[in-house]
Design a protein around this nucleic acid. Structure first.
Lengths: 154, 154
DNA sequence: CACAAACGGTTGCGCACGCAACTGTCTGGA
DNA sequence: TCCAGACAGTTGCGTGCGCAACCGTTTGTG
């Protein structure tokens, strides 16, 4: 792998933010997946649904999709799996019979309670590479980006 | 979507860094994909290969995979597509006949030269939401994370 | 009141993906 | 020198994904 010599604009990937974000997200996701895959046989979409419904009771598939930025079919199938495993329940909404309110079942809450501390520990370990000031700066960047991309208000 | 009431640890997704990173990466990738999909009919893996080979001539599939964190089969197929379209060329290595050195063809270089300014402009637009100081803080965070995850030396 | 358009959610379909197994090549230790 | 194991890259296979089309429901505009 030799240095590039082409005249004209070049793209240094290692400094290109979209590239870095993606690579980082893949890596971090992978690290996390060891927990919920190995320990609880959850796939990524299912884990995300669990986390969302665990936080927001009575959320709908729609809202899970918007919040996680997963395609609605992906959400739909993840919910189907979780229902089959008895981890979440669905109740038809009274006000709008199209939508279904989601909530963790008793078993789901039990799993969620085990999952959360592990996930938080993993996050803590991830961020240990930064000083407090650095962490603050990094998080501020995340805030700005999310706001500018309209991810804030989901 | 009502506030949660469960006793015990809870996970605020909107503040959970792995979640935020992933959502951000998906969104940013999507924004970028508008360029290379619509304009050049490149899929994500192909764009990544183009960008890597564009920067590092004579890189191998192996190195592309390591650098982008894509699975080697994904890289292999992306290279096959790009070769079929005449955008990259392959030469067997003299020193190790297992590996194949990759380089952009003339057509590939032409496309790359068009692609790069668009990608850089997109990145600039993305980062416009931050002040110079904020940008520096954010990038430092990326540096730290990559270093700690072993992504730095690829 | 009616009907078209929008919306929440599901499903059929084709495709790209990851896994594992493979081929061919290189390496290192007995 | 030989052979087992590692490695670069490809491919068959099953699966999960996104797209588009769909169903049933709600909304809003005439």
């Amino acid at each position: 792998m030799t240095a590039r010599s082409t005249r004209g604009a070049s793209l240094r990937l290692s400094g290109f933010v979209p590239f870095r974000l993606n690579r980082l997200a893949v890596e971090v996701s992978h690290h996390l997946s060891v927990i919920y895959r190995g320990r609880f046989a959850l796939e990524i979409p299912e884990w995300r649904v669990m986390a969302t419904v665990g936080q927001y009771q009575d959320s709908t598939a729609q809202q899970v999709a918007a919040s996680t930025r997963m395609h609605k079919t992906r959400v739909s199938r993840a919910i189907a799996h979780l229902r089959k495993r008895g981890l979440i329940e669905r109740l038809a909404s009274r006000s709008d019979r199209r939508e279904m309110h989601l909530r963790l079942s008793r078993a789901g809450r039990r799993m969620y309670a085990q999952l959360v501390p592990l996930a938080l520990a993993r996050e803590r370990a991830l961020l240990e590479c930064m000083s407090v000031a650095e962490r603050r700066g990094f998080v501020t960047g995340l805030d700005r980006l999310e706001e500018s991309l309209g991810l804030r208000k989901l």
